[in-house]
Design a protein around this nucleic acid. Structure first.
Lengths: 195, 195
DNA sequence: TTGACAGACTAATAACCATTAGTTATACTG
DNA sequence: CAGTATAACTAATGGTTATTAGTCTGTCAA
């Protein structure tokens, strides 16, 4: 792993923990194991690190939500839909790297329009669009009752987003949050799926 | 309005705009119209202001979500439920003071357990509990189909919370957000209410 | 009128922070 | 081996920040 990558990594950790303004260049350098001025061999300055991180985040979400590849094959039963969904949520909630990205974004979302747009894509339009496609596909196969896929996507994903946010704030209730998520998804399927 | 209150007011505005670490004591004093050192006649220091603000927020949410008074009389028809809900959302979304409080809280939610708990109360448990009571009451009157009131409360409030958050980031799409909210609430009522 | 007090001011301090300049050592490349 | 680029270091600069000490002014009660 290159020094540049290690800097980005430690910066993300600290920004997620204490925010951009709450983190000093010296802190970052210390975590990397170099002196602060050496950091200027890799980045033009503190803000340059921030921009590199938001570039990363944008690329990641673009790749994840933009292509249809991540949708994979459509679930073929109610139980498969539920299991797939829960697994995705559990991963998203607990994976340390994704959690750091998310906290970083939540903290800095008001910094400028670009941060705002990426946050919206991540929290709302991205996941919603992805699930809209899945639900639309399953509707065509008769697994979901006829309805507006976009609306259903919002209704299933929004509560999950709030519970994930709660788990980010209070990591000790991850299990409780996952239980709520499962209960919610099962209820959603009971209402909107066929049979 | 006392100087102390003006300090709190301007501090909240700046904290919501630029965050706690992004705001200097001098900026606050300048907005109030006094010099920075004079501010120490009213507060022990910068962090003291922060704590006073979070005290305010906690008291406010405690009063708002704790008592049953704010629920008022239960809506007696589908349309009344929808109109009441939309009006509440519109007010919450647009009122400048509430918006500042919300942005302040979102920015500082990771500061410590207290901030985290208050944020959760505001974003999740508070509003959800309030709507659970309303829906439960309306269920008893036969306006809602028999179901778990807590689950329904989450399903109706969570998407709204995300759209309000989006409007906080991108105030130019308040109208679009309100339109989405209305569409969502109407759909929710079509699915879960009787008739 | 006097005295107390709240609350503003000026001035100063000590810490911290991002950044720059200049130097040195190590590791490839011809 | 020579030369060059990379990337680390030390030291210093300029600016900002929170905070404190001490002083001055106006207001109200005795």
């Amino acid at each position: 792993m290159t020094t540049r990558d290690r800097i980005l990594n430690e910066a993300l950790t600290l920004f997620a923990q204490n925010g951009y303004d709450g983190t000093s260049v010296e802190e970052i350098a210390e975590k990397v194991g170099i002196k602060a001025p050496s950091l200027y061999n890799h980045f033009k300055g503190k803000e340059d690190i921030l921009n590199a991180l938001i570039d990363m985040a944008e690329a990641r979400y673009e790749e994840f939500f933009g292509s249809d590849r991540h949708i994979g094959k459509l679930p073929e039963s109610k139980e498969e839909f539920i299991q797939t969904a829960i697994q995705k949520v559990s991963f998203t909630m607990c994976d340390p790297m994704i959690r750091k990205m998310r906290k970083f974004l939540v903290r800095e979302q008001f910094r400028n329009e670009r941060f705002a747009a990426i946050t919206t894509k991540h929290q709302l339009s991205g996941i919603q669009g992805m699930y809209a496609k899945i639900i639309e596909g399953m509707m065509r196969q008769g697994l979901f009752k006829e309805d507006d896929p976009e609306l259903l996507a919002t209704e299933v994903t929004a509560p999950v987003a709030l519970w994930i946010a709660k788990a980010d704030r209070q990591p000790d209730c991850e299990q409780a949050c996952m239980a709520s998520v499962e209960k919610h998804i099962r209820h959603f399927c009971d209402v909107y799926m066929t049979e």
